[in-house]
Structures are given as C-alpha cells and as structure tokens.
C-alpha cells in the first residue's frame, strides 16, 4: 500500500498535457487501424428511419430538413444529414432543406452535394433547397408553412419561385410536408415542437448533438418527438440502417427492402464493404469513440482510487 500511494499522488499531479497526448493517441490509433465495432440501433433512431421510409415514392408526402447549426458541430451532425439525405434520394422521398443561420447555409450545400453524388436527382424535382432565411422570419415561416409553403417561403436558394417548381405538385402545407427533422446544436428543436407540433400536429424529429440529447428526452418520452438521432452514435445508427435496408442489393437486382427488426439484429455490415468513406464517417468515428470512452472510464477509476488512498493516508497521518 505504501508503494502505491506515491504513484497515485504523482498521477494526480500529472501535467494535463500528458492526458491530452493519451486522448489523442486513443483516437488516432483506432482511426488508422479500424475495427468493426457493432452498431446497435436504438428505437428513437429506428423510428425516424421508419417514418421517412413510409413516405417512399409518394408524391403527396415530403420531409423538411432544418439546419440549425454551424461548422463547429459538423463532426456530429453532418454524417446524420448525409445519411438521411441518402435515404431520401434512394427511396424517392421528396425533401426540402432550410436554415435560419447564415453559417448553416454552406453546410446545407455541403451535405446535399455529398449525398446526391451517387443519385440521379434534380434540384426542384426530387429535392429543393429553400436556402437561408433571416432569423427574424423564423416564426412567420414556421407558422406560415402550416397554411401554404409556397406563399410564405416564396423563393428557393437559387431565387426561383417555389410555386412553379415540379416538386411542389401535391405539396401545400404541413399536411403533406408532414415530418420536420431539425439538426441542431441548440434548443432550436424546441421551437418546432412548441409552434409547429402543438399548433399543426406536424411530426417533429431531432438530429442533435450529444450535449443536447438529455434535454430532449422528455419530449421523446411524451411522444412530442417522433424520433431522435443523438450525436455521432445516432448518425452511426442511421448510416447502418441506410446500408442494411435502403441501399440493400436484393438477389433479383432491385435495391432496397423494408425495415425489419429481425433482419437488423442479424445484420453485420463490415466497414471495409462500404465503398465511400463519407457513407461510414460516423461508424469509423464510433470506433475511436469506443476506445476513448474506455480510456476515460479507466482514468475516472484511477482518479477515484488515488483520491481515496490519499484521503486514507492523510487520516492515518493525523491520527
């Protein structure tokens, strides 16, 4: 015991820069030497997938993706945006994008450009980017879309009149654009719940940073959120769902199959089988996340052992 205590005392006085170095290595090594950590899909993520999938091929259904974050949280939110957009493009779900933050505008283009690369989709027909709208118009647009989307949004990111676009056929208001997914690093989701959900009954889902997850669980539990993607973990889950179902190659040559819990439990996607890195960013990241979490747990245990041993030593010295 007397030999251990000085070790822990030294550990507690360790320069924080050594800790940074260990954290960096715990992340760099799993990224360079990838392994297939299993991704378990949680119910809130599966619910978002199922709802979007239920709109497949329907001209009278669409979803709205609201981008409420800037580049600082791209690492967590962009993989989920790309995964959802891929799902929509693959399953022919009409999708609209919108943002009220200037810094989110290029992030929408970035996610759209990555996702549409492998699909034959056209702006104005299969998807439409409403673009950046000033924050002062947040409430008027949010409420106005409950009556007439084309009237309140007026023009898309390219300045085209929305009412003239083919994508607007059969789409008038929240009755058709019945799901809003808000990607946020703030409490922006709350506004959609309070105004759009409470007043128009629109389905709201959240794609949020892990920091915000705990705050949003009460809304999930009460059914005010139909589903939720929490941080990098949520993004990794959605990436897996897209690979297992939406882009699955059937023996008869067709692509895509319906969601099934049984298939999901049996599925094992090897990361090396996924061609593009942008389609597995979150899952690669979760490898590093796993190692980093184990390391942090070890640090916490060591810190606590050191604390209690030092406390005991002090008590013995005082006696």
């Amino acid at each position: 015991m007397s030999n251990i205590v000085p070790f822990f005392e030294k550990m507690q006085a360790l320069d924080r820069r050594y800790i940074y170095l260990v954290v960096a290595l715990a992340i760099i090594i799993p990224l360079l030497i990838p392994f297939n950590s299993k991704t378990y899909v949680t119910e809130p993520t599966a619910n978002v997938y199922k709802m979007i999938d239920s709109y497949a091929g329907r001209s009278d259904r669409a979803i709205l993706l609201s981008f409420s974050h800037d580049a600082s949280t791209m690492a967590e939110l962009t993989p989920m945006e790309v995964a959802i957009l891929r799902h929509c493009f693959q399953r022919k779900v009409k999708v609209f994008t919108l943002c009220f933050m200037p810094a989110a505008s290029p992030l929408m283009d970035y996610a759209l450009n990555i996702a549409k690369e492998d699909y034959d989709v056209q702006d104005g027909i299969d998807y439409c980017n409403f673009g950046y709208k000033p924050y002062g118009l947040f409430l008027p647009i949010l409420l106005g879309m409950g009556d007439d989307i084309a009237e309140i949004v007026e023009t898309d990111a390219q300045g085209r009149k929305i009412s003239n676009l083919p994508i607007m056929t059969d789409i008038t208001n929240y009755n058709e654009m019945n799901l809003v997914v808000d990607f946020a690093a703030s409490s922006a989701v709350y506004s959609w719940i309070v105004y759009a959900r409470a007043r128009y009954g629109v389905n709201v889902a959240a794609g949020i940073t892990a920091v915000m997850a705990a705050d949003n669980y009460p809304y999930l539990q009460t059914g005010q959120l139909v589903g939720m993607l929490s941080g990098l973990k949520g993004a990794a889950e959605y990436e897996k769902l897209v690979d297992v179902f939406a882009t699955h190659k059937n023996p008869d040559g067709t692509i895509g199959r319906s969601y099934s819990k049984e298939i999901l439990q049996e599925s094992w996607i090897k990361l090396s089988d996924v061609d593009k890195r942008v389609y597995k960013t979150a899952r690669i990241g979760m490898n590093a996340q796993t190692v980093a979490h184990v390391m942090i747990i070890v640090f916490i245990i060591l810190g606590n052992i050191g604390f209690f041993l030092s406390k005991k030593k002090k008590e013995q010295e005082m006696m």
């Binding site: 960096a24 791209m74 690492a75 967590e76 590093a288």
Partner: peptide, 13 residues
C-alpha cells in the same frame, strides 16, 4: 463527454 470527443474525432478524421 461523447459530444466533445466526437468533435475531436471529426477534426482528426
């Protein structure tokens, strides 16, 4: 913790 590590992972990726 998960969120902060994710941001670091993003930059290192």
């Amino acid at each position: 913790v998960m969120a902060r590590i994710s941001l670091l992972i993003g930059r290192i990726q």
